[in-house]
């Protein structure tokens, strides 16, 4: 049976649904294989916390472990600055997607467009729509991944719907460890 996304406003009606990644090792491989990955951080990261640790901190750990540039959307930048990190770029979700879909865009580091974009913490209806833009208009040059707690059908790679926050945290921690190890 097809996977039903956690928030049902995001149900897919179509042909191509994302591949579920349940293994953090495989996930780390996919990220490390990318030549120019980009992490897009959404405002939910400053709302969610797991066991007292802000979700944003996990995201920043991932960025650091894999040396991935991060784009702060919405007002995430404020919290990042508080945590002593400044984002590599500041765009809203729809703006970064608008740039990403252009194969000739120079990317946030001005080194060329990205080949993998990883979403984390954009509110799920907006994130699903952003993934749809890229699925339809950037499929030739860009793969998409989401590391959110829920399944996103429009991505190329998505995590499953985790029943418990702890499972998600476990995944992210293992992912971070693997990224550090394999880098």
């Amino acid at each position: 049976m097809a996977v039903v996304p956690f928030h049902r406003v995001n149900v897919l009606t179509g042909i191509k649904a994302s591949r579920i990644i349940e293994d953090p090792v495989q996930c780390a491989d996919l990220i490390l294989k990318a030549r120019r990955p980009l992490l897009v951080l959404g405002a939910k990261l400053i709302e969610w916390s797991v066991d007292g640790k802000l979700a944003l901190e996990y995201a920043l750990d991932i960025a650091r472990a894999a040396r991935i540039p991060a784009c702060g959307t919405a007002h995430v930048k404020g919290k990042m600055v508080e945590l002593g990190v400044s984002p590599d770029s500041v765009y809203d979700a729809v703006e970064i997607v608008n740039a990403l879909k252009d194969p000739d865009w120079r990317g946030v580091k001005k080194e060329g467009n990205h080949d993998l974009v990883i979403f984390l913490g954009v509110r799920s209806d907006l994130e699903e729509q952003c993934l749809s833009v890229l699925k339809h208009f950037a499929y030739k040059h860009l793969r998409t991944m989401t590391l959110d707690k829920y399944y996103f059908p429009h991505a190329n790679y998505s995590l499953p719907n985790f029943k418990k926050d702890e499972q998600w945290r476990g995944f992210l921690e293992e992912l971070i460890a693997n990224l550090r190890k394999e880098r």
């Binding site: 897919l12 009606t13 179509g14 042909i15 191509k16 729809v94 997607v97 608008n98 729509q129 952003c130 749809s132 833009v133 699925k135 339809h136 208009f137 499929y139």
Partner: peptide, 22 residues
């Protein structure tokens, strides 16, 4: 225009559904 399709398909006539992805 920036388009975020809800689905991959069009189902507006009986020739369809048509897959419009990729």
């Amino acid at each position: 225009p920036w388009y975020a399709p809800f689905c991959d398909l069009c189902c507006l006539c009986t020739y369809g559904k048509c897959d419009l992805s990729q």
